[in-house]
Amino acid sequence: MPDLQKLYDAVLNGDQKTSVAITREALDAGTDPMVLITNYMVPAMDEVGRLFECEDYFVPELLLSARAMKGSLELIRPLLAARGDEPVGRVVIGTVKGDLHDIGKNLVGSMLEGGGFEVIDLGADVSAERFIEAVQTKNANIVCLSALLTVTMPSMRTTIEAMKAAGVRDKVKIMVGGAPVTSQFAEEIGADGYSDNASSAVALARRLRAEATA
């Protein structure tokens, strides 16, 4: 049985090789995969988020930690699916139509995964139709829209309008973010929440889930 504290450290330090090795060892030894996520990986990513917010960590460290966590999740996910375990929530995420920038969106997606959410990443330049289709087929409860350019922010509004027209708007909570986006803009276009960084996006998603299931 491996020392699971090392899994926490590996995710925190962005060491993918170690995090994957320990995860494999632990699973082979019969550790409950949910324990690995809940007791070690989620707390490690929470700490990564805290370090990012207090400016100890920056984008490269965040990406490395996310990569370490993803490596482990790839081993764990099939086991959870086979058992029929439900994630904390299902998130559909994408950069809106007209915008190619996806680093911010990737960071938010990784932090949400680290927070125990299942994340369906549609990539960049995503049309409203693709968001709607993903909500319908993936049984999602949260949709995250990202935009990095002032000129592509209007695509957030049109995506939400299209979701209303397709009758899927009320099935999900909608979160928006990206450098030019403000909480005022989020309110104007009828989103449910806004976050200005990847770490607080996790807290927001948890709150929205709690509201929805309360």
Partner: peptide, 8 residues
């Protein structure tokens, strides 16, 4: 300038 406001 419309083409300069969106991908590609």
């Amino acid at each position: 300038v419309e083409p300069l406001s969106r991908v590609p």
